[in-house]
Write a protein that binds this DNA or RNA. Structure first.
Lengths: 149, 149
DNA sequence: GTAAAACCTCAGGTTAACTTGAGGTAAAGT
DNA sequence: ACTTTACCTCAAGTTAACCTGAGGTTTTAC
């Protein structure tokens, strides 16, 4: 029982992404493959987890470039183990905490801010928070809604 | 003491945005202006607050299109009052709560998920959450980092 | 009254994260 | 064997949220 190597199609299917996405990720250095004699991509099994992590991280609002950097800490030579992945998780959890805290601040400022008169660019807590937080590396947020449709 | 009407330049300056952004917002139906005889834009003072709100909402991850829709509930004929703005704030606060809850779930799932073996597309809580939440209108997230450049 | 600063429109550019399509090769099924 | 399915590369298109620049007009300041 050799571990069967995966084709792009299989990986795409199992991860719920398009083949073109895998090409794209490879081009961006997020995943790796080697080629068979026919020049077709083959993947090791751990690419599945890698892609899962990429997707999860994206949902947390991390850009592909940042994900790439984080993933580059994973060992290239051997299949990453539990400790490797945990390191990644720890790295991002702190980030998440900051993002969440930022959102909470925004939420808490919102009602007061919009309702009262303070929402003037210079004095509004929302704007003051921004500067403070962007220095910490947590800046603008873009949440994409994919509601009904 | 007539309220002096604002020019694009003034509005841009006071809001910390570029003139082109104001043109853009107007084109997208987010703000309004009228023209003087020379065809130049003039704004009422409440445009400042409107833009503040747009900016704040963007930081919360709301898309311009959604902001436009929300703002379209504001009265066009009269200057919006406190109640009008509060309605908006309430509308978005619920949204924020969902987004925050989603982030928290993600964060809490992250360590376990990445660390253990469950991060397989079909069973991972992160993926299950996604479906559940996207039906509620809270989908993918994109947080833009503007750290130290 | 004239020169600089501000404004106008419209076309096209930018970035991220992909997707689509054309034109061609490899692998799999029967 | 041959046909269908899968894969390859490379170029160009897509969306959001703007920005830049060209070519021309209006205001403002001295």
């Amino acid at each position: 029982m050799d571990v069967p190597n995966l084709t792009v199609g299989k990986v795409a299917e199992r991860c719920g992404v398009k083949v073109s996405t895998l090409h794209f990720y490879e081009e961006k250095g997020l995943i790796r493959s080697w080629r068979n004699q026919g020049n077709q991509r083959r993947y090791k099994r751990d690419v599945l987890r890698r892609i899962s992590v990429i997707k999860a991280a994206q949902k947390m609002g991390i850009s592909l470039e940042n994900i790439r950097q984080a993933l580059s800490c994973l060992p290239d030579s051997r299949t990453p183990n539990k400790k490797d992945w945990e390191k990644l998780a720890n790295f991002w959890r702190e980030d998440m905490n900051q993002r969440i805290a930022y959102m909470e601040k925004l939420r808490d400022s919102l009602t007061g801010c919009i309702g009262c008169g303070c929402l003037s660019m210079e004095t509004c807590p929302i704007y003051n928070n921004e500067d403070e937080l962007s220095k910490q590396g947590t800046g603008a947020i873009l949440l994409e809604k994919e509601a009904g449709e």
